[in-house]
């Protein structure tokens, strides 16, 4: 499904290249006047008027997203749980190499929590620890996570990891601990301060981050003109993370 969309989009982009190009730079020019993540007063709750989203242009990610993954590791302190075997290590984000079996067309993209509008992990969680914030960020409320791993069974993107051992000296802004499930949370602690997620900062030329509900945001303008495919769009989850060039 997503491949058909991708094909159609590329086709249209090729046909109407000049016109769209003109519009595109207009999009950019307008966007730099306002920041992508407006700072929110610390004592105000997040609002459902906002829906955070990310558009990743994989053709412009020259490293396939390695820098983004590294930034995520540093920001959240995962990637080296000393006692866990490789299959047990947490991976909030990874680069996936995809090769079409017939055409041999190949590309690499970063995959993490796709921040679905209808997240299966939230549906299945018995305690509500797996949750979606008002602003569309899907995360684990580790305070009430009992470690049943049902969300890991339910996630179609394999976005979640289970912490298999006790940890110390976590990042103060990113708690993670034994017996709970964890995943990309779009760097909530940064967004709440009006900063971009760490991975977005690590790939500023290939990723646009912003509010999908705001028609004037840079990301809304970009997805409107260029589209933005979802991984497993057939599941109808309406993801917040979108890709160009799938």
């Amino acid at each position: 499904m997503s491949q058909i969309n991708a094909y159609r989009r590329k086709f249209m982009a090729a046909v109407g290249g000049v016109a769209v190009g003109g519009l595109a730079s207009g999009v950019i020019l307008r966007s730099v006047e306002a920041s992508d993540v407006p700072a929110k007063p610390a004592d105000q709750p997040v609002s459902n008027k906002v829906r955070w989203g990310m558009l990743i242009d994989i053709n412009r990610l020259t490293d396939g997203g390695v820098a983004m993954v590294e930034a995520c590791k540093r920001e959240h302190g995962w990637g080296n749980d000393p006692k866990s075997r490789p299959e047990q290590q947490s991976q909030w984000m990874r680069t996936v190499k995809v090769t079409d079996k017939l055409t041999q067309h190949s590309f690499t993209l970063p995959v993490m929590c796709q921040h679905c509008e209808e997240p299966p992990c939230v549906d299945v969680c018995p305690t509500g620890a797996s949750m979606k914030r008002a602003d569309g960020i899907v995360q684990v409320n580790k305070h009430i996570c009992i470690g049943c791993r049902y969300c890991m069974m339910a996630c179609p993107y394999k976005a979640r990891s289970f912490v298999h051992e006790s940890l110390t000296d976590q990042r103060p802004h990113s708690p993670r601990g034994m017996g709970t499930v964890e995943s990309c949370n779009l760097c909530v602690h940064r967004i709440d301060k009006g900063q971009l997620p760490a991975c977005v900062e690590a790939a500023p030329n290939a990723v646009i981050f912003g509010d999908l509900n705001d028609p004037n945001s840079r990301i809304s303008q970009a997805v409107k003109t260029l589209g933005g495919s979802q991984i497993r769009a057939d599941l109808g989850l309406n993801t917040g993370v979108r890709y160009l060039g799938l």
């Binding site: 305690t127 509500g128 017996g179």
Partner: peptide
Amino acid sequence: DLGHADRLLVTLTHRNTKSIFAWNI
């Protein structure tokens, strides 16, 4: 086998009515 068997009581205080696990409890 739960990661946090000590938090079993949480399943009584916090319930997600859409979860089949919660129904099963």
